[in-house]
Design a protein around this nucleic acid. Structure first.
Lengths: 135, 135
DNA sequence: TTGCGTGCAAAGGTTTTGCATGGCA
DNA sequence: TGCCATGCAAAACCTTTGCACGCAA
């Protein structure tokens, strides 16, 4: 049975993630912020903790483009997110939650026709939102 | 006026891409294949040519996750690319690509009803594949 | 001949791993 | 005390860039 310890480092990282739950942040952002506040946390620790949070569903990982590192966003309410889909704008970073019967159908279609159980809390549609498209 | 030259290297790369137009291949795949056939082509050349093919629209670049390199797919018919989607199993890590007209509809639905332009080259459905679900 | 293409080597990033130390419970 | 967590250094990768040479037209 694996046990998890509470540490100052985790507390600092989680605090920052929660304070920025409206957007996504990079590992560099986290390190810069903590460092600026005199809270020294190693790079390795940030990666390892984020990886854990992703697997537990508390944090979602985004890959906007492969050359500039991944981004992470704290998910306040995991249960709610299982019911809907997500649209992530690659320009402004906005995350849009969509409750839509049609999109619920998509999960059913993939299950029936492609024998694959979609986890909608982890699935993200990348693209461009209306506001950014107008620019 | 920029002119483009035809070279053996380009010929080899394009040949491989066309022969594998039904899936996507990584830079490593291309290099391994060419090397196995005694066709020595430099890594840099592959990257540069793929980049050019992407900009001209002949090849599509997929970013599944940032830690394992990008994938590329030759696009024979522009309409076809709308149908290509990805399913990634979170248990075994397998990536399944699906050509399905129904899933192409999804992009249209999101565009019309949610005012969001989906980029299917970055979008991946996460979930559990059949083999893993049976365990 | 002109100038694009190639490929080596090196640089630039991000992310992971090995290992000894530190700290929670 | 028993593990898990941490962090440094180094490694592992993928991708890009500089530069001299090669080659298509």
């Amino acid at each position: 049975m694996k046990q998890e310890y509470n540490t100052k480092q985790k507390e600092y990282i989680l605090e920052y993630l929660r304070a920025n739950a409206q957007t996504h942040v990079s590992v560099g952002d986290i390190l810069a912020h903590l460092h600026a506040h005199g809270r020294e946390v190693g790079t390795t620790t940030v990666y390892r903790y984020l990886d854990r949070l992703c697997r537990s569903g508390e944090v979602r990982k985004y890959v906007i483009d492969e050359t500039s590192g991944a981004c992470y966003q704290y998910i306040a309410d995991t249960d709610e997110c299982e019911k809907h889909f997500h649209l992530k704008c690659t320009r402004c970073g906005r995350l849009i939650h969509v409750d839509c019967a049609y999109l619920g159908e998509v999960g059913r279609h993939i299950g029936e026709h492609h024998r694959f159980t979609v986890d909608s809390s982890k699935t993200v549609f990348y693209g461009v939102c209306e506001a950014c498209a107008e620019k």
